[in-house]
Design a protein around this nucleic acid. Sequence first.
DNA 1: CGGAGAGTTGACTGTGTTCAAGCACCGTGG
DNA 2: CCACGGTGCTTGAACACAGTCAACTCTCCG
Lengths: 240, 240
Amino acid sequence: MPKLDQTTLAPALPGNCSTCSLLPAAFYCDGSDGCAAIIERLRRGQRGVRAKRSIYREGDVAQEIYVLYDGWAFRYKLLHSGQRQILSFLLPGDPISFPLLHLDRVNFSVRSLTAVTLCIFRRSEMSDYIAARPQLAKQAELICVQAMAATEERLVDLGRRSAYERVGKLILELVDRLHAKGLSDRKEAPFPLGQLHIADALGLTSVHVGRVLRQFRANGVLSLHRGRLTIHDPEALAQL
Amino acid sequence: MPKLDQTTLAPALPGNCSTCSLLPAAFYCDGSDGCAAIIERLRRGQRGVRAKRSIYREGDVAQEIYVLYDGWAFRYKLLHSGQRQILSFLLPGDPISFPLLHLDRVNFSVRSLTAVTLCIFRRSEMSDYIAARPQLAKQAELICVQAMAATEERLVDLGRRSAYERVGKLILELVDRLHAKGLSDRKEAPFPLGQLHIADALGLTSVHVGRVLRQFRANGVLSLHRGRLTIHDPEALAQL
DNA sequence: CGGAGAGTTGACTGTGTTCAAGCACCGTGG
DNA sequence: CCACGGTGCTTGAACACAGTCAACTCTCCG
């Protein structure tokens, strides 16, 4: 079995923007002809980051903003007590992260899960570019509203659902997002999250997540092994 | 003791927009001279709603959007099981709610807590008005990002903080917001939330919220009685 | 006076945590 | 090729925070 590409040091390198498969779906693309050329001029290069490395730290001044070209990462907050709450997971094509356009200091941290490549933009340039295009500004607001809806859905999970439901819904959400990007067939998927990541995203402990995953396995719903997710019973999963 | 104005049927009625004290802080005001006149033309009147009435139901098509002129309300989601998760509380001057500008169907419900008056706008008109003003579009995005930050802070609460901390932080947040609007001196405030509302916002039960409030009273931190909040020890509260 | 709704209290239960030990896997280096 | 150490996963026992259920009180209001 070949190494998972998510764990290699240098994932696929972006060529130029006009051939980039992620571009058409990006929030900063208005679909016009000249768009790719403009964005290519806006792009300030790329950066490779190894797995489990810090990308932003809470309080950093963000002059540069990144788009995740390849690999997985996550946004989180750290408490004084050392506890961690993961806010969201970032998949290939996701911006890191939209609010950065408007905040002088980031109010969360970001860390790579796998090796990752980032496309680099200057915040001020990207901001001007969007502001000059009402069409894009509207699209940007839409992105923000959708992120809001996702966060609120997660809020409902933490407030009112059992550990079993939370874990199931998180996995389902990630598989759906991967599917939308053409990175999974909904039966199998790369899955670089550890039990501790799942726990920190869902307000649980890694020990309990382990027990819940055992239940899922016992029920024949899904199994998670060595960075690989397999879904045996999509029906049962969707039921949540 | 006079009746609390939050529970009267018809709260203060808005005059015209140019004399409205809420306008300068509203997200749809760019601060220009002609602004109030334009908004006054945009405004399609007002509506009074009694306490504990439904304002939006999840799935509704929203042609009209509202700004809360007076009174308290809250946004929430209902689960199949009948459980409720409150997403946020709305105070005088808050829009209900920003995402409505971009969503054809609302993905949450809204209910009045006290008697309420709403200023009414047509969604399409408001949307066009903002889109035509890049300055406003940017302001709108900022509002959205701030709402996002608040929701993520709540997410951290539900995921990683004890019941005692959650209740304390919620009360502190509301007092700060009231203070910012000139509606509280941080020592006392109207507080129309019941224990069930607090519980549904924080992922707890009303019984347990009752116990936590008793602790706060016993510790001499704050007391909550008959729709009135009194803070005895702001230090201890801010410590959370 | 009577009823509804919200808050209070107590006993009991349960979901998820804590702590601790052991195991499997994997990359590294001899 | 194997020994080593680190990290992450598994398991079990004891515990705690918060939930459930049920009875009771208080207040408001008709």
